[in-house]
Amino acid sequence: MHGDEREAVEVVNEAGGSQIVLLCEHASNHMPPAYGALGLDAAQTRCHIAWDIGAAALTRLLARRLDAPAFLGTYSRLLIDLNRPPGSDGSIPARSEDIDIPGNTGIDAAERERRARTIFMPYHDRVVAHLDHRKRLGRPTRILTIHSFTPVFLGVKRPWHAGVLHGEANGFAFAILQGLRADPGLHVEANVPYAVSRADDYAIPVHGDDRGLPAALIEIRQDLLGTEAAQQAWSVRLASILAELAETIP
């Protein structure tokens, strides 16, 4: 990757005993120096267009609390988005929200292939290898992907504290949703701030639906993950719900 030796995936607690497998595709805003931050300034590389703020910390905390394996992306979503099908409009965006990405404008097929080969495929190949291994062992598996979203998108305020998204299988997602709704202080809905689709999403359709595995994606509003205390609180809340589900769902 232009001299950057970073692995494309950070694997945490792979031998964990939980039924839950955690994915965090937008865990990092890292870009190799050779990419010149894709022409963005420092503030832009720290905002949501480059990564999901707070998602990585929450994923690591959940991995520990649940004794769950976790797979985190180690490069910025702006180089190539691990949760978008390669070749889709959102895979290597020339514009994200209302910000142009100069370093992604007019790139050729060879560069697109390079990013897919060095970032996208190594991440997902590692997830596939883990899921295949669990299948051989006959281990129950439920996939949960961890994301965060902005309080305001293109000038429109988003009122939800969290959203729980799903693909073809909705039972696991609805169980999480009901667990979160037990807290009357939370405004949580299904399929917000967007809905999962095969055209625009990757992990849920490919690792979940195509394998017949229960899979859900949780989106938490960024301002609710801005501190270590907030991340700890969400990890406690989600771990409690998920641990209870593991006892009631075979």
Rank of each mutant, 00 (worst) to 15 (best):
125 D>P: 00
90 G>V: 00
186 L>K: 03
96 S>D: 03
73 G>N: 11
30 H>D: 01
109 A>L: 13
173 A>I: 08
204 I>Q: 06
37 A>Q: 08
233 A>E: 14
162 A>V: 05
94 A>I: 09
24 C>V: 00
99 I>E: 03
249 I>V: 15
165 L>M: 12
171 G>H: 15
127 V>Q: 11
213 L>D: 02
77 R>H: 02
20 I>F: 15
215 A>K: 07
110 A>S: 13
123 Y>R: 04
48 H>M: 05
141 T>L: 14
24 C>P: 01
204 I>L: 15
227 T>K: 05
194 Y>G: 00
167 G>N: 10
7 E>Y: 13
38 L>G: 01
59 T>N: 06
109 A>G: 08
189 E>L: 15
121 M>H: 14
214 P>T: 01
174 F>Q: 11
239 A>G: 06
37 A>K: 06
179 G>L: 12
11 V>L: 12
214 P>R: 11
14 E>H: 05
80 I>F: 15
36 G>L: 01
166 H>Q: 09
175 A>W: 01
248 T>I: 09
16 G>Y: 04
13 N>F: 07
103 G>E: 10
113 E>L: 12
141 T>K: 07
184 P>R: 15
7 E>W: 07
196 V>E: 10
205 P>R: 00
229 A>W: 13
208 G>K: 03
232 Q>D: 14
185 G>N: 13
59 T>G: 04
201 D>F: 06
226 G>H: 14
63 A>F: 11
155 G>P: 08
126 R>M: 02
236 V>N: 04
38 L>N: 03
86 P>C: 04
202 Y>N: 03
230 A>T: 01
145 T>R: 13
209 D>M: 11
145 T>C: 15
23 L>Y: 10
241 I>T: 05
96 S>T: 08
61 L>Y: 08
102 P>I: 01
152 V>R: 15
246 A>R: 08
153 F>P: 03
232 Q>R: 13
149 F>M: 03
49 I>C: 00
51 W>I: 01
243 A>F: 13
149 F>D: 00
131 L>F: 07
197 S>H: 05
131 L>E: 02
214 P>A: 06
96 S>K: 11
86 P>K: 02
92 I>V: 12
213 L>S: 01
62 L>F: 07
16 G>M: 03
89 D>H: 15
6 R>S: 09
110 A>E: 14
185 G>A: 10
223 D>F: 07
63 A>Y: 10
72 L>S: 00
225 L>T: 04
68 A>Y: 04
